[in-house]
Amino acid sequence: MTQHLPAASPPSGAGAAGPQVLYDTEVVAVGELVPQFVDQGVLVLFGEQAPEELHEFSVLHRPRQAVEGPRPGDEIVLGGTRLPVLAVGDVVAENLLNLGHLDIKADGHDRAQLPGDVCVPVGPLPSVAKGQRITILRGAAGGPADEGDRA
């Protein structure tokens, strides 16, 4: 088990062992329509083996570690941005582990509107660049009840 400790803030409070890495991947390409999707509050990821027609609106990536899908209270870390997971649709884990596919929606919902949605707070999604790491962490934010207003 590797422990990837994000540099942004040390894990105080929850689990003395630090956050668990559920998923760890590296961006290999960013489609030309990704900024338009991001403007609409949607970020789409696919594993790099995805067929070509999905490339233009997707962040393609190469997973290093794929343990399980996210659940509410986990965090998605993109570069230096940490997105708390608010809700997760029924098919998210299957799509992530089989296809490297994730639909991140900055819609603030606490229930997924679509079965593939991973809901995060309303707000601008970060831009994503080739070579960047994307990780999904559990136990980094102090648990589902604590949504990150820690000083």
Binding site: E52, N95, D103, L114
Partner: peptide, 19 residues
């Protein structure tokens, strides 16, 4: 990958956003 003009039908397991 396959060219689009060869596809009779696409079967997807999409969660509602992209495919």
């Amino acid at each position: 990958s396959a060219p689009f003009d060869k596809i009779a039908v696409a079967v997807i397991d999409c969660g509602g956003t992209a495919r």
